[in-house]
Amino acid sequence: VPQRAWTVEQLRSEQLPKKDIIKFLQEHGSDSFLAEHKLLGNIKNVAKTANKDHLVTAYNHLFETKRFK
């Protein structure tokens, strides 16, 4: 089981690129989880459509539901 890579403050910070969060989610989330949160596909394309709040919610949801690969 992966550990949380970032704190809530870090997740919301401008310093953390959306692409980093997407990469983490794609590496650790199950396909059904990723599909549900519309996070499947090319990281660049996902970054265009997903806002930061959406990614933070998905990140927290992944750990709450433990839907890891």
Rank of each mutant, 00 (worst) to 15 (best):
T7Q: 05
F63P: 00
K19C: 15
D31R: 14
L55C: 05
D20I: 12
H28S: 14
D53S: 07
S13A: 04
V46T: 05
K18I: 13
L11E: 01
E27H: 10
A5F: 14
V1E: 10
Q15R: 06
T49F: 14
N42I: 10
N42F: 10
V8I: 11
A47Q: 14
H54S: 11
D20R: 10
K48I: 14
Q15D: 10
Q15K: 14
V56G: 02
E64Y: 07
V46H: 05
N45D: 15
W6R: 09
L34K: 06
G29Q: 01
R12L: 15
V1H: 11
A35F: 12
T49P: 03
H37Y: 13
V56T: 06
K48R: 13
V8A: 12
Q3A: 09
I21N: 00
H28N: 14
Y59W: 03
G41D: 07
A35I: 12
P2S: 04
Q10V: 05
P17V: 08
V56F: 05
S32A: 11
E9I: 03
E14G: 09
E36Y: 11
N60R: 05
I21G: 00
K23P: 01
L16Y: 04
L16K: 02
S30K: 05
D31I: 14
Q15I: 06
V46N: 05
W6Q: 12
N42T: 10
H54Q: 12
D53N: 08
F24L: 03
Q10A: 04
K66H: 10
S13P: 02
A5I: 15
R4D: 15
T65M: 11
L55I: 07
G29I: 01
P2C: 14
T57S: 10
V46S: 05
S30D: 10
K38E: 12
A47V: 15
G29E: 00
D31Y: 14
R12F: 15
T65F: 13
H37Q: 09
L34H: 01
Q26R: 08
V1Q: 10
R12Q: 14
D53Q: 07
R67Y: 05
N60I: 15
K69A: 10
K66M: 10
E36T: 07
A50C: 13
K44L: 15
D31S: 11
G29L: 01
H54I: 10
E64Q: 08
D31A: 12
K38A: 13
I21D: 00
L34D: 00
D31V: 12
F63G: 01
P17N: 11
D53G: 07
H54L: 11
F63E: 01
S13T: 03
V56W: 02
K52Q: 05
N51V: 08
D31M: 13
D20G: 04
I21E: 01
Q15S: 12
K19Q: 15
S32Q: 11
L34R: 03
L62E: 01
R67P: 04
I43P: 10
G41M: 04
Y59I: 03
V1I: 12
S13F: 02
Y59N: 01
I21T: 01
G29H: 01
K66P: 05
T65A: 13
Q10H: 04
A35G: 08
K48E: 15
Q10N: 04
L55S: 01
S13I: 02
E64F: 08
E64R: 06
K19A: 15
K52L: 08
F24E: 04
H28Q: 08
L25I: 07
V1P: 10
P17M: 08
W6M: 11
T65W: 10
H37A: 06
A58K: 02
K19H: 15
V46W: 04
L55Y: 02
Q10I: 04
T65D: 08
F63V: 02
D53F: 05
E36S: 07
N42K: 11
E36G: 08
F24R: 01
K18D: 09
S32G: 09
S30G: 05
R12G: 06
T57K: 12
L39K: 00
E9S: 03
W6F: 05
H54R: 13
A50Q: 06
I22N: 00
V1Y: 13
K23A: 11
T57W: 09
V46C: 06
I22S: 00
F63I: 02
T65I: 04
V56C: 05
K44S: 14
